[in-house]
Design a protein around this nucleic acid. Structure first.
Lengths: 240, 240
DNA sequence: GCCCACCTAAATGTATACACATGATGATAT
DNA sequence: ATATCATCATGTGTATACATTTAGGTGGGC
């Protein structure tokens, strides 16, 4: 059967979920034997899963073997979001410098039109926005025409707090959210416009600034005025 | 005994060397059983080694399991070097924005003075230069005060052709080499000067341009006028 | 009282037998 | 002649027994 999950895949899904949800806190060492017993899976697939989680950047290899859950301070979160901005800025610059096909341009414009449609409604469908937003950022990576850049962006973006659509779920105040999304969409449009107009420097600067909004969001959430961090899935693995 | 290599380490060293040297060409699939027989090591440590090489970016996981040696086209090489420039540019900018300690500044200045000394001799000690050059680039990463950035720079730099000291071994013409190194050293000095003077934009631009020199070097080596690629270790895993 | 060596428990490292998935091959029926 | 299905070869997936390493505690000697 093709839909049967291997033991490695089961372990991978379970452990990834546990780490991302914060069920296992940063710095915790993961012992193969303990996990094997608990998940009723032998050590071999557990090791394979741990190894892949290390590839994803969720675990670190400890000295003398073993794996430890990676621990992220606020500074790490901010730096990682900024780094996404730098990489997306580079992607935008490449897209502008190298030029993109009419098909690519039209596809991205269509995505932005759909986002406009979602934002026009009174009660915004956040899941739809999130999907479309992620799609636009993915298209931006593709427009760079650099496999290297796509790869590194995918790596960074795999961290939940560095994803382009992080921190969208938890806005308690509707009007603040609508304003934020309107600004973000204006930046999307400007980035694509700069790329279409071959304005490389402008495209890069805009994409950097776009990520900066996410950074402000985090800083607000983790400030005293922010909501409880408990309710924010993207921040589950961030330590105090 | 502490100096005894585990089987995994043996396999890792052997396989890494084979991939880096080009003994196994890009796109080749690596079979566990074959490697296990050949290296007289059981499959378990072989798998562990392959997994770590995938983490290092030298192998890719194939569909349906298995590992394949990653294949780099010229475009990938150029993009990766450029990416190093972008990341080092960001490191330089952070260093300038955030400020560095006097100890850090003096340490880097000392490194640059040593490079000056090496370059002043008639017959340049390339190994000494390479070591010092690598040290300076490492210090630049540290000055960023961003663990995230340090991590990503280390990842990129692990690829032989993206290392700051790549392509130093194979210059046939001495005077061209001396000119290249003099320019590079001038850039080093300017970058550190910009950081010390808190000139963030200048620091970033200079670090980017510094990587561009490596890019020009590759493009020359792979052009018709360049030497045979065979003699260039850094390019062993680059495909035609 | 302190330090060093040894011991032990608990962890990872290793080998290997077997299970399972997949794709190639060839025989057979239509 | 071709399509289909059984069979087999070859790969990874999994479990498990055993080896090895190492950290920590405990004892003895100085």
């Amino acid at each position: 059967m093709a839909d049967t999950l291997t033991q490695t895949q089961k372990a991978l899904l379970t452990l990834r979920q546990r780490v991302l949800s914060g069920a296992i806190s940063g710095g915790t060492r993961l012992y193969e034997v303990a996990l094997a017993e608990e998940l009723a899976i032998s050590r071999t697939p557990i090791r394979a899963a741990l190894s892949r989680l290390a590839e994803e950047g969720l675990l670190e290899r400890g000295r003398g073997g073993g794996f430890v859950v990676r621990s992220f301070a606020l500074a790490d979160v901010v730096d990682t979001i900024d780094l996404r901005g730098v990489l997306e800025g580079t992607a935008a610059r490449y897209a502008a410098e190298r030029g993109i096909s009419l098909e690519q341009l039209e596809r991205s414009r269509a995505t932005l039109r759909e986002i406009d449609r979602v934002l026009a409604t009174q009660d915004i469908d956040m899941e739809a926005y999130s999907t479309l937003n992620t799609a636009f950022h993915l298209q931006l990576a593709l427009m760079s025409q650099s496999a290297t850049l796509q790869r590194e962006l995918a790596r960074i973006t795999a961290l939940p707090f560095a994803s382009p659509s992080a921190f969208l779920e938890d806005h308690d105040r509707r009007e603040a959210l609508q304003r934020t999304l309107a600004v973000a969409q204006a930046q999307h449009i400007a980035i694509l416009d700069a790329i279409a107009g071959r304005e490389a420097g402008r495209a890069e600067a805009l994409a950097r600034e776009h990520a900066r909004a996410a950074r402000r969001n985090v800083e607000f959430l983790l400030s005293d005025e922010g909501v409880q961090r408990e309710g924010v899935p993207s921040l589950a693995l961030v330590r105090d």
